[in-house]
Computed example of a mutant assay.
Amino acid sequence: MNHKLNVDVSKILVMGAGQLGLAVLNALHPRVSALGGDITVLVAPGSIEDEATPVDESLKKFAAKGMKFKAFDLSNISHEALVAFFSEFNTVINCSGFVAGLGTQTKITQAVIEAGVARYFPWQFGVDYDVVGIGSGQPVFDEQYEVRSILRQQQSTEWVIVSTGMFTSFLFEPAFDAVNLEEGYINALGGWDNKVTVTSPEDIGKLTTEILLESPRIINEVVFVAGDTISYGELANLVDSISNKPIARNVLSLESLQSELTKKPDDQMLRYRAAFALGDGMWWNMEKTYNFKKGIETQDTEQWMNTHIS
Protein backbone atom coordinates (compact mmCIF):
# COMPACT_ATOMS: atom_id res chain seq x y z
CA MET A 1 0.00 0.00 0.00
CA ASN A 2 1.13 3.54 -0.75
CA HIS A 3 1.43 5.21 2.66
CA LYS A 4 2.53 8.40 4.39
CA LEU A 5 2.29 9.22 8.07
CA ASN A 6 -0.26 11.57 9.67
CA VAL A 7 -3.88 12.23 8.75
CA ASP A 8 -5.24 15.79 8.72
CA VAL A 9 -8.79 15.92 10.15
CA SER A 10 -9.19 19.68 10.00
CA LYS A 11 -11.61 21.13 7.44
CA ILE A 12 -13.38 17.98 6.20
CA LEU A 13 -16.26 18.40 3.75
CA VAL A 14 -18.87 15.65 3.39
CA MET A 15 -20.93 16.16 0.23
CA GLY A 16 -24.47 14.88 0.61
CA ALA A 17 -26.48 13.74 3.62
CA GLY A 18 -28.64 11.05 2.05
CA GLN A 19 -28.52 7.37 2.99
CA LEU A 20 -24.74 7.09 2.51
CA GLY A 21 -23.78 10.59 3.66
CA LEU A 22 -25.68 10.11 6.92
CA ALA A 23 -24.01 6.73 7.51
CA VAL A 24 -20.59 8.34 6.94
CA LEU A 25 -21.43 11.22 9.32
CA ASN A 26 -22.64 8.82 12.04
CA ALA A 27 -19.33 6.94 11.96
CA LEU A 28 -16.96 9.82 11.18
CA HIS A 29 -18.20 12.60 13.47
CA PRO A 30 -17.36 11.08 16.89
CA ARG A 31 -13.87 10.06 15.68
CA VAL A 32 -13.06 13.42 14.09
CA SER A 33 -14.44 15.35 17.09
CA ALA A 34 -12.26 13.33 19.45
CA LEU A 35 -9.24 14.29 17.31
CA GLY A 36 -10.18 17.99 17.40
CA GLY A 37 -11.16 18.09 13.72
CA ASP A 38 -14.21 19.65 12.11
CA ILE A 39 -16.76 18.64 9.48
CA THR A 40 -18.90 20.70 7.11
CA VAL A 41 -21.78 19.06 5.25
CA LEU A 42 -22.97 20.10 1.82
CA VAL A 43 -26.75 19.64 1.42
CA ALA A 44 -29.32 20.46 -1.25
CA PRO A 45 -31.03 23.88 -1.32
CA GLY A 46 -34.05 23.89 0.96
CA SER A 47 -32.37 21.45 3.38
CA ILE A 48 -31.30 24.19 5.79
CA GLU A 49 -33.09 27.14 7.39
CA ASP A 50 -31.63 30.37 8.80
CA GLU A 51 -28.49 29.75 6.71
CA ALA A 52 -27.26 27.11 9.18
CA THR A 53 -29.85 24.79 10.76
CA PRO A 54 -30.74 21.57 8.92
CA VAL A 55 -34.44 20.89 8.37
CA ASP A 56 -33.88 17.13 8.71
CA GLU A 57 -34.22 15.84 12.29
CA SER A 58 -31.42 13.29 11.81
CA LEU A 59 -29.01 16.15 10.99
CA LYS A 60 -30.08 18.55 13.76
CA LYS A 61 -28.15 16.51 16.35
CA PHE A 62 -24.95 17.18 14.36
CA ALA A 63 -25.67 20.92 14.13
CA ALA A 64 -26.17 20.96 17.91
CA LYS A 65 -22.65 19.50 18.25
CA GLY A 66 -21.14 22.26 16.11
CA MET A 67 -21.16 20.69 12.65
CA LYS A 68 -21.57 23.29 9.89
CA PHE A 69 -23.97 23.01 6.94
CA LYS A 70 -23.83 24.65 3.52
CA ALA A 71 -26.43 24.40 0.75
CA PHE A 72 -26.26 24.84 -3.01
CA ASP A 73 -27.42 23.14 -6.19
CA LEU A 74 -24.61 21.02 -7.65
CA SER A 75 -26.24 20.85 -11.06
CA ASN A 76 -26.35 24.65 -11.47
CA ILE A 77 -23.28 25.97 -9.67
CA SER A 78 -20.52 27.38 -11.88
CA HIS A 79 -17.08 25.78 -12.08
CA GLU A 80 -15.50 28.91 -10.59
CA ALA A 81 -17.88 28.97 -7.61
CA LEU A 82 -17.30 25.26 -7.00
CA VAL A 83 -13.51 25.70 -7.05
CA ALA A 84 -13.76 28.64 -4.62
CA PHE A 85 -15.95 26.58 -2.26
CA PHE A 86 -13.71 23.49 -2.32
CA SER A 87 -10.57 25.58 -1.68
CA GLU A 88 -11.76 26.03 1.94
CA PHE A 89 -11.28 22.29 2.68
CA ASN A 90 -8.39 19.85 3.19
CA THR A 91 -10.44 16.67 2.66
CA VAL A 92 -13.56 16.15 0.54
CA ILE A 93 -15.69 13.00 0.90
CA ASN A 94 -18.18 12.87 -1.95
CA CYS A 95 -21.45 11.11 -1.03
CA SER A 96 -23.55 13.09 -3.51
CA GLY A 97 -24.55 10.20 -5.80
CA PHE A 98 -25.92 10.65 -9.30
CA VAL A 99 -28.89 12.87 -8.40
CA ALA A 100 -27.44 16.00 -9.99
CA GLY A 101 -27.24 14.29 -13.39
CA LEU A 102 -24.68 12.99 -15.85
CA GLY A 103 -21.40 14.92 -15.95
CA THR A 104 -21.61 16.10 -12.33
CA GLN A 105 -18.97 13.71 -11.01
CA THR A 106 -16.34 14.76 -13.57
CA LYS A 107 -17.23 18.41 -12.88
CA ILE A 108 -16.78 17.91 -9.11
CA THR A 109 -13.51 16.00 -9.56
CA GLN A 110 -11.98 18.66 -11.81
CA ALA A 111 -13.03 21.41 -9.36
CA VAL A 112 -11.58 19.50 -6.37
CA ILE A 113 -8.20 19.21 -8.13
CA GLU A 114 -8.20 22.84 -9.29
CA ALA A 115 -9.09 23.99 -5.76
CA GLY A 116 -5.96 22.28 -4.40
CA VAL A 117 -7.86 19.97 -2.02
CA ALA A 118 -5.23 17.78 -0.34
CA ARG A 119 -7.28 14.56 -0.19
CA TYR A 120 -10.36 13.39 -2.09
CA PHE A 121 -12.71 10.44 -1.62
CA PRO A 122 -14.74 10.52 -4.86
CA TRP A 123 -18.27 9.19 -5.34
CA GLN A 124 -16.98 5.74 -6.34
CA PHE A 125 -18.86 3.75 -3.70
CA GLY A 126 -19.84 1.10 -6.22
CA VAL A 127 -18.43 -1.52 -8.55
CA ASP A 128 -14.91 -2.05 -9.94
CA TYR A 129 -14.97 0.54 -12.73
CA ASP A 130 -11.42 -0.42 -13.79
CA VAL A 131 -12.70 -3.87 -14.76
CA VAL A 132 -16.03 -2.61 -16.14
CA GLY A 133 -14.25 0.01 -18.27
CA ILE A 134 -16.07 2.02 -20.93
CA GLY A 135 -19.08 0.69 -22.83
CA SER A 136 -20.99 -1.27 -20.17
CA GLY A 137 -24.20 0.28 -21.51
CA GLN A 138 -24.53 2.32 -18.30
CA PRO A 139 -23.44 5.94 -18.99
CA VAL A 140 -22.87 6.70 -15.28
CA PHE A 141 -20.39 3.79 -15.18
CA ASP A 142 -18.53 5.33 -18.14
CA GLU A 143 -18.35 8.60 -16.21
CA GLN A 144 -17.00 6.80 -13.14
CA TYR A 145 -14.19 5.33 -15.26
CA GLU A 146 -13.45 8.83 -16.54
CA VAL A 147 -13.25 10.18 -12.96
CA ARG A 148 -10.55 7.57 -12.20
CA SER A 149 -8.61 8.61 -15.30
CA ILE A 150 -8.73 12.30 -14.27
CA LEU A 151 -7.49 11.45 -10.76
CA ARG A 152 -4.65 9.24 -12.03
CA GLN A 153 -3.44 11.87 -14.49
CA GLN A 154 -2.63 14.41 -11.76
CA GLN A 155 -0.33 14.52 -8.74
CA SER A 156 -1.59 17.50 -6.71
CA THR A 157 -4.58 15.86 -4.94
CA GLU A 158 -4.28 12.54 -3.10
CA TRP A 159 -7.27 10.27 -3.70
CA VAL A 160 -8.75 7.18 -2.11
CA ILE A 161 -11.48 5.16 -3.84
CA VAL A 162 -13.65 2.94 -1.62
CA SER A 163 -15.13 0.14 -3.76
CA THR A 164 -18.22 -1.24 -2.04
CA GLY A 165 -20.30 -3.06 -4.63
CA MET A 166 -24.00 -2.17 -4.52
CA PHE A 167 -25.90 -1.20 -1.39
CA THR A 168 -27.35 -4.43 0.06
CA SER A 169 -30.82 -2.86 0.09
CA PHE A 170 -30.64 -2.20 -3.67
CA LEU A 171 -30.77 -5.96 -4.33
CA PHE A 172 -34.27 -5.92 -2.81
CA GLU A 173 -35.42 -2.69 -4.48
CA PRO A 174 -38.54 -3.60 -6.52
CA ALA A 175 -37.55 -1.11 -9.25
CA PHE A 176 -34.17 -2.84 -9.69
CA ASP A 177 -36.09 -6.10 -10.22
CA ALA A 178 -33.54 -8.61 -8.93
CA VAL A 179 -35.39 -9.73 -5.79
CA ASN A 180 -39.07 -8.81 -5.59
CA LEU A 181 -40.39 -10.12 -2.29
CA GLU A 182 -43.85 -8.65 -2.72
CA GLU A 183 -44.43 -10.39 -6.05
CA GLY A 184 -42.49 -13.47 -4.87
CA TYR A 185 -39.74 -13.88 -7.48
CA ILE A 186 -36.02 -13.51 -8.05
CA ASN A 187 -34.37 -12.62 -11.35
CA ALA A 188 -30.79 -13.84 -11.76
CA LEU A 189 -29.00 -11.11 -13.70
CA GLY A 190 -26.92 -12.92 -16.29
CA GLY A 191 -27.27 -16.38 -14.69
CA TRP A 192 -27.40 -18.20 -11.34
CA ASP A 193 -23.60 -18.41 -11.02
CA ASN A 194 -23.17 -14.66 -11.59
CA LYS A 195 -22.04 -12.92 -8.42
CA VAL A 196 -22.55 -9.50 -6.85
CA THR A 197 -20.73 -7.76 -4.01
CA VAL A 198 -22.96 -5.86 -1.58
CA THR A 199 -22.34 -3.66 1.49
CA SER A 200 -24.79 -1.86 3.77
CA PRO A 201 -24.51 1.96 4.00
CA GLU A 202 -23.79 1.63 7.76
CA ASP A 203 -20.80 -0.61 7.03
CA ILE A 204 -19.63 1.72 4.24
CA GLY A 205 -19.76 4.63 6.72
CA LYS A 206 -17.81 2.66 9.33
CA LEU A 207 -15.18 1.37 6.85
CA THR A 208 -14.74 4.71 5.06
CA THR A 209 -14.01 6.27 8.47
CA GLU A 210 -11.39 3.60 9.23
CA ILE A 211 -9.81 4.02 5.77
CA LEU A 212 -9.77 7.82 6.10
CA LEU A 213 -8.09 7.67 9.51
CA GLU A 214 -5.71 4.79 8.71
CA SER A 215 -2.20 5.74 9.79
CA PRO A 216 0.08 5.73 7.94
CA ARG A 217 -2.48 7.20 5.56
CA ILE A 218 -3.63 5.49 2.34
CA ILE A 219 -2.74 7.41 -0.82
CA ASN A 220 -3.89 7.08 -4.46
CA GLU A 221 -5.44 3.65 -4.04
CA VAL A 222 -8.59 1.68 -4.71
CA VAL A 223 -9.57 0.02 -1.43
CA PHE A 224 -12.06 -2.85 -1.69
CA VAL A 225 -14.62 -3.45 1.06
CA ALA A 226 -17.64 -5.77 1.21
CA GLY A 227 -20.44 -6.93 3.42
CA ASP A 228 -20.90 -10.02 1.26
CA THR A 229 -20.16 -11.50 -2.15
CA ILE A 230 -22.99 -13.77 -3.21
CA SER A 231 -24.17 -15.55 -6.36
CA TYR A 232 -27.77 -15.18 -7.51
CA GLY A 233 -28.20 -18.91 -6.87
CA GLU A 234 -27.08 -18.51 -3.24
CA LEU A 235 -29.28 -15.45 -2.95
CA ALA A 236 -32.33 -17.40 -4.19
CA ASN A 237 -31.72 -20.11 -1.57
CA LEU A 238 -31.43 -17.46 1.14
CA VAL A 239 -34.63 -15.73 0.05
CA ASP A 240 -36.41 -19.13 0.07
CA SER A 241 -35.31 -19.93 3.61
CA ILE A 242 -35.99 -16.51 5.10
CA SER A 243 -39.29 -15.69 3.37
CA ASN A 244 -40.83 -19.12 4.16
CA LYS A 245 -42.70 -19.20 0.86
CA PRO A 246 -41.89 -20.54 -2.59
CA ILE A 247 -40.06 -17.99 -4.71
CA ALA A 248 -40.29 -18.11 -8.50
CA ARG A 249 -36.87 -18.16 -10.18
CA ASN A 250 -36.12 -16.54 -13.53
CA VAL A 251 -32.93 -15.85 -15.45
CA LEU A 252 -32.54 -12.50 -17.19
CA SER A 253 -29.75 -13.25 -19.65
CA LEU A 254 -27.33 -10.54 -20.75
CA GLU A 255 -28.57 -10.96 -24.33
CA SER A 256 -32.24 -10.51 -23.38
CA LEU A 257 -31.47 -7.43 -21.26
CA GLN A 258 -29.36 -5.84 -24.00
CA SER A 259 -32.08 -6.56 -26.54
CA GLU A 260 -34.66 -4.92 -24.24
CA LEU A 261 -32.31 -1.91 -23.87
CA THR A 262 -32.38 -1.26 -27.62
CA LYS A 263 -36.16 -0.79 -27.29
CA LYS A 264 -35.99 1.25 -24.04
CA PRO A 265 -32.64 3.08 -24.10
CA ASP A 266 -33.76 5.63 -21.49
CA ASP A 267 -34.79 3.09 -18.83
CA GLN A 268 -32.18 3.70 -16.08
CA MET A 269 -33.01 0.62 -13.99
CA LEU A 270 -32.88 -1.57 -17.10
CA ARG A 271 -29.42 -0.12 -17.76
CA TYR A 272 -28.36 -1.14 -14.24
CA ARG A 273 -29.73 -4.67 -14.67
CA ALA A 274 -27.89 -5.07 -17.98
CA ALA A 275 -24.64 -3.76 -16.45
CA PHE A 276 -24.85 -6.12 -13.46
CA ALA A 277 -25.60 -9.04 -15.80
CA LEU A 278 -22.08 -8.54 -17.22
CA GLY A 279 -20.74 -10.16 -14.04
CA ASP A 280 -17.13 -8.96 -14.40
CA GLY A 281 -16.28 -6.06 -12.11
CA MET A 282 -19.52 -6.43 -10.13
CA TRP A 283 -17.94 -8.60 -7.42
CA TRP A 284 -14.67 -9.46 -5.64
CA ASN A 285 -13.61 -12.08 -3.12
CA MET A 286 -14.06 -11.24 0.57
CA GLU A 287 -10.40 -12.16 1.20
CA LYS A 288 -9.39 -9.16 -0.96
CA THR A 289 -11.23 -6.65 1.23
CA TYR A 290 -9.91 -4.14 3.75
CA ASN A 291 -12.44 -5.33 6.35
CA PHE A 292 -11.40 -8.99 5.97
CA LYS A 293 -7.70 -8.13 6.31
CA LYS A 294 -8.37 -5.90 9.34
CA GLY A 295 -10.77 -8.35 11.00
CA ILE A 296 -13.62 -5.81 10.94
CA GLU A 297 -17.03 -7.49 11.03
CA THR A 298 -19.61 -6.50 8.41
CA GLN A 299 -23.22 -7.44 7.81
CA ASP A 300 -23.69 -10.16 5.18
CA THR A 301 -26.83 -10.61 3.07
CA GLU A 302 -28.42 -13.11 5.46
CA GLN A 303 -27.90 -10.81 8.47
CA TRP A 304 -29.24 -7.86 6.47
CA MET A 305 -32.37 -9.84 5.53
CA ASN A 306 -32.93 -11.00 9.10
CA THR A 307 -32.75 -7.39 10.26
CA HIS A 308 -34.81 -5.75 7.48
CA ILE A 309 -37.22 -8.40 6.22
CA SER A 310 -39.84 -9.76 8.55
Rank of each mutant, 00 (worst) to 15 (best):
N194F: 01
F276R: 07
D193H: 11
E158K: 07
A178V: 15
I113E: 02
M269E: 09
E173S: 13
D128Q: 01
R119L: 10
L82M: 14
E221Y: 04
T91V: 15
K60A: 02
M282G: 04
I150H: 04
L212P: 02
E80P: 02
K11F: 07
E302G: 03
E183S: 12
R148Q: 14
Q303N: 13
I93C: 05
I211M: 06
K65I: 00
E173C: 14
G233V: 03
L189V: 03
Q155A: 09
K206E: 08
G46R: 04
E57N: 11
I134S: 08
T157S: 08
V55E: 01
S163G: 10
V160Y: 02
L5I: 05
D38V: 12
L270I: 12
S47L: 00
I242T: 14
D8N: 15
N180Q: 08
Q124S: 13
K263D: 15
L171Q: 06
L5T: 01
V239A: 08
R249Y: 13
L207H: 09
R217F: 04
G97V: 03
G233R: 07
E49D: 05
V223A: 03
G21F: 09
F62S: 01
E80C: 04
N2M: 04
N2L: 01
L102C: 05
A52R: 14
V222E: 12
W192R: 05
A277M: 10
S149A: 14
H308N: 15
M67Y: 04
E49R: 14
G279Q: 07
D193W: 00
V112G: 02
L82W: 03
A175R: 14
S169G: 14
D128E: 07
K68Q: 10
S136D: 04
I219H: 00
E173F: 11
L189F: 15
S156C: 08
L28T: 09
V225Y: 05
L207K: 03
T301R: 00
Q144F: 06
E146M: 11
S243E: 13
A275G: 09
F98Q: 10
M282Q: 14
W159G: 00
E297T: 15
L171M: 15
